[in-house]
Simulated scan of single mutants.
Amino acid sequence: MAEAAKQIEMPVGVVVRKTPGVTRWARWNWRAVAVLPGAPPADWVELRREGDAVEYHAATLRLKLWSDETEAYMANLSDSQPSLYLVLRDDAEGDRPLNAFLITASPYEGQDYADTGEEIVEKIPMTEGLIAWVRDFTLAHRHDEVFVKRRRDKKRVDLVEDGKGDARIRQTSDVYRAPRRAVQ
């Protein structure tokens, strides 16, 4: 039997919706709304316009699945709505409003990027085909770790009293008393 690949990848297009902001501080509200599995390369191609709301095919990123991340994928698949996590960076000096940086199926990796506070992490629901693709890869590579109880060693650590009391006191009667100053 041939060994399954340790990593697989698929191009995934990301659809981002731009709507007018609701406060005076945010002129526009950007939100990732859908994914397009197997999409061709794109760079902020307008898909649909409804009044002020515009949907863009913002980018096509490589969704990579790794064999050592199957625990994270299982946690994602067990959620009520399995999702992909899109990491966006604010690209102030470029001509794009946001830079689509990474897409992942690992909720742990998405959380890591969200913790920094420098990137925007959007949760996008997976399509049925993507759910099946991630599930098949995860089941092919998943292996539960066997619990091994740690055994204690038989060394007696209570027999030696190193570091107990003040080393400047020579007597063993009261090791906790403070040393006295010699009277002259």
Rank of each mutant, 00 (worst) to 15 (best):
L36F: 09
A100M: 14
R89L: 13
A32I: 02
A140L: 10
G94P: 05
W66D: 04
D158H: 00
A105T: 07
R48L: 09
T60K: 11
A5W: 13
R135Y: 12
L36N: 07
A132V: 12
L47Q: 10
R24Q: 11
T60L: 04
Y113F: 11
P125H: 03
A42N: 13
K155G: 06
V22G: 07
V160Y: 07
V15M: 13
N76R: 06
W66R: 08
I169W: 00
V33P: 00
R156H: 01
L47R: 12
Q171M: 09
W28Q: 01
G13I: 02
L159I: 09
T19C: 00
R181M: 08
L63P: 00
S83R: 15
P125S: 10
R170K: 07
T138R: 00
L86D: 04
R48N: 08
Q184W: 06
D144R: 13
D166S: 14
L139F: 09
N76L: 00
E109L: 11
E122A: 01
Q81E: 12
E122W: 01
P107G: 04
E118D: 11
A34I: 01
A182H: 09
K164T: 03
E128L: 08
G21N: 03
A59T: 08
D166R: 02
T172E: 09
D43W: 14
R168V: 11
S80A: 08
R31C: 05
N99H: 08
R142H: 09
V45A: 12
A26I: 06
Q7R: 13
A39E: 00
A132Q: 15
P125V: 04
H143N: 15
R152D: 12
A2H: 15
A2K: 15
Q7E: 13
Q171F: 13
K155Y: 14
T116W: 04
R170I: 08
T19A: 05
I103Y: 12
A114H: 03
A5N: 15
D90Y: 15
R181D: 10
R48P: 01
Y176T: 04
F137N: 02
A26E: 13
Q184M: 00
S67G: 10
K64M: 11
A100F: 06
A4E: 13
E93W: 02
A72L: 10
S173T: 15
